Simulated assay, not measured.
Amino acid sequence: MTCIPAIETRFFAFESDFVDSLRCIPMIVRYKLDACRVKLQLADWAKFNYDEKDLLAEMRCHTEPEIEIYADYVNELVWKYTKTVPGLLKNLDPAWIYEHVPEEVHERTRGWNCPLISTSQWMQLDVLERFALVKLSRSGHEGRNFPRALAEFGLAAAC
Rank of each mutant, 00 (worst) to 15 (best):
M27V: 09
F153L: 01
F11H: 08
A158M: 07
F12E: 08
E15C: 00
S120C: 03
E76N: 15
C114A: 13
I7K: 02
N145F: 14
T2I: 15
A158H: 11
C114L: 05
V105T: 01
R37E: 05
E52F: 08
L42S: 04
I117T: 14
R10A: 14
E99A: 00
I4G: 05
I67D: 00
K135R: 14
I97V: 13
E104I: 13
C24F: 13
V101D: 00
P94R: 14
E99M: 06
N145Q: 13
Q121Y: 08
R23S: 04
G111M: 02
S120Q: 12
D20N: 04
D17I: 11
G143I: 11
S16A: 13
H141S: 09
Q41N: 11
R60Y: 11
K53T: 02
C159P: 06
A46Y: 08
N145M: 10
M1H: 04
M123V: 04
L77T: 02
F12P: 04
I28M: 10
V127N: 07
S16H: 06
D17Q: 09
T119K: 13
V74C: 03
D17Y: 14
M59W: 14
L42C: 00
A151D: 09
T119N: 15
K39N: 15
A158D: 02
E76K: 15
D34V: 09
D20R: 08
I28C: 13
T119W: 04
R130H: 02
K47R: 11
V134I: 14
N91C: 06
R138A: 14
N49I: 12
E76F: 07
I67C: 01
F11C: 00
E64D: 14
A35H: 12
V105A: 01
F48C: 01
V38A: 08
S139Y: 03
L42P: 00
L125A: 11
L150G: 04
C3Y: 03
D20G: 02
V105N: 04
I28P: 01
E129Q: 15
I67H: 07
L89K: 15
L92I: 15
E103F: 09
P147F: 13
P94S: 15
N49L: 06
I4E: 09
F48R: 05
A6W: 03
W96L: 06
A35Y: 13
N145T: 12
T119V: 11
R108P: 02
V101Y: 03
I28H: 10
K83F: 10
G87I: 01
C24K: 15
E8A: 06
G140F: 03
I67A: 02
C3V: 07
W79D: 12
L55R: 15
E152H: 02
L128F: 12
L128E: 13
A57D: 07
L125T: 09
E76Y: 09
E142D: 07
E99R: 04
W122D: 07
L128D: 14
R37C: 00
R148P: 00
S139V: 01
L136T: 03
D34L: 15
W96K: 10
L125V: 04
Y50V: 13
D17V: 06
W96E: 05
E76Q: 15
R23P: 00
H62I: 09
M1A: 02
E103M: 10
I69T: 05
M27T: 12
D72P: 01
F18Q: 02
L116K: 06
